[in-house]
Design a protein around this nucleic acid. Structure first.
Lengths: 213, 213
DNA sequence: ACCTGAACACCGTTCAAGT
DNA sequence: ACCTGAACACCGTTCAAGT
């Protein structure tokens, strides 16, 4: 009982050398992503800033791609959390209004986390086929949309048409705006958060009008 | 008259050493892009395949980014051509149907030229701010949409609401599908051309229904 | 079990020098 | 005017060797 040395060593969490290197690499990776942008993200730089040799990350990630996938996963988790919270918050509203709020939440996320969006949906992940988990996470938002539509059909506020097509219609529109914003294409990227929200609201209204019975 | 030597030399167009290096680099760049994908596109590799030293491209492009911008510009030109041809071809139809065809043409382009779309809208172009021309080319499609909407309002087939919002609604939806397809996100990317066209048609119909008076 | 250092084969970019 | 070769400062990845 006196000489157990295996667990008591982790006194200073600021010295990674042992212990929590993997999460430290992920955190530093997205820190670089947010501050320097997407071009500055190199495995060597991440290792350097975390104070570890450039070969060390290879004990925790198969390659650079694996690190990026981990960052993307965090992004999807964050996005899904915000969407679920929106869904909860708007529980009392009718389907079209909830639908609208979900779309606005997605776009708001994209505006606030551009770099995340680039990593989540851009071409940084070379072999996405190897990571089917990612695709499932993307579907998290779709599920919320379809549930909302279903409730809308039950209460008679949404037309009794194919849910999947309707959900995809909304997701695609909202995703399109989001990517144009994240990649700073088109004038819409220069709007501030409030302007973007108003404009997006009008766009979504155009779509919702077409989904009513 | 006998000894003019300045123009008569270009006999063998297959020897780039003099002459048309710049277009050759652009062509080879997108050839690599299409065959090997987006990760394999390095300036040195382009130079190598064109049979020229790795420093030679720098006489024609300021940096790698400039080459990529040139490729993206070709992509935009191609996309705009297809959209304009669609617009011409559907001259006899009413606005909602033309609107629909324009959207389908955009998505069809994205399906057939994934790599182009990645370069045109992805994060490969580091300093897009330096190239406002690109943004103008993006707007080419938007102009067609707005014109169509205007005609629709004149003939009474489109609601008398803000054209810009309506055009953006359509562009965003269609762009969203296109990027999900180009980046192979979501199940929609696994559809073949016919399936994708049918599904997209239904999505666009949802939107058009909301744009009617 | 986890990390380091050297090594390899690549990059993008620059610059003196060649024709 | 256009191109080359060497050089520089970076990469990602591997692997023997260290603790």
């Amino acid at each position: 009982m006196a000489s157990d040395s295996s667990k008591a060593e982790k006194k200073h969490p600021e010295r990674y050398h042992h212990g929590n290197l993997k999460p430290a690499l992920i955190r530093m990776g997205l820190e670089i992503l947010v501050s320097e942008g997407t071009e500055s993200l190199s495995l060597r730089e991440v290792a350097r800033r975390v104070g570890v040799s450039h070969a060390a990350p290879y004990r925790h990630f198969a390659d650079k791609n694996a690190l990026i996938v981990s960052i993307a996963e965090e992004g999807f988790t964050l996005l899904n959390q915000e969407l679920e919270e929106t869904s909860r918050r708007t529980g009392g509203l009718k389907a079209p209004e909830r639908f609208r709020e979900l779309g606005l939440a997605y776009i708001s996320f994209a505006k606030r986390y551009k770099q995340y969006m680039k990593v989540m949906f851009g071409s940084f992940i070379a072999d996405y086929k190897v990571f089917p988990d990612l695709e499932k996470k993307v579907l998290g938002g779709m599920v919320l949309l379809e549930q909302t539509l279903q409730a809308g059909q039950a209460e008679g506020s949404i037309a009794a048409r194919d849910q999947r097509v309707m959900a995809f219609s909304c997701w695609s529109m909202v995703h399109g705006v989001s990517m144009l914003v994240a990649e700073s294409r088109s004038e819409i990227a220069r709007m501030d958060e409030v302007q973007l929200r108003d404009f997006s609201g009008l766009m979504i209204d155009n779509l919702i009008a077409g989904l009513r019975p």
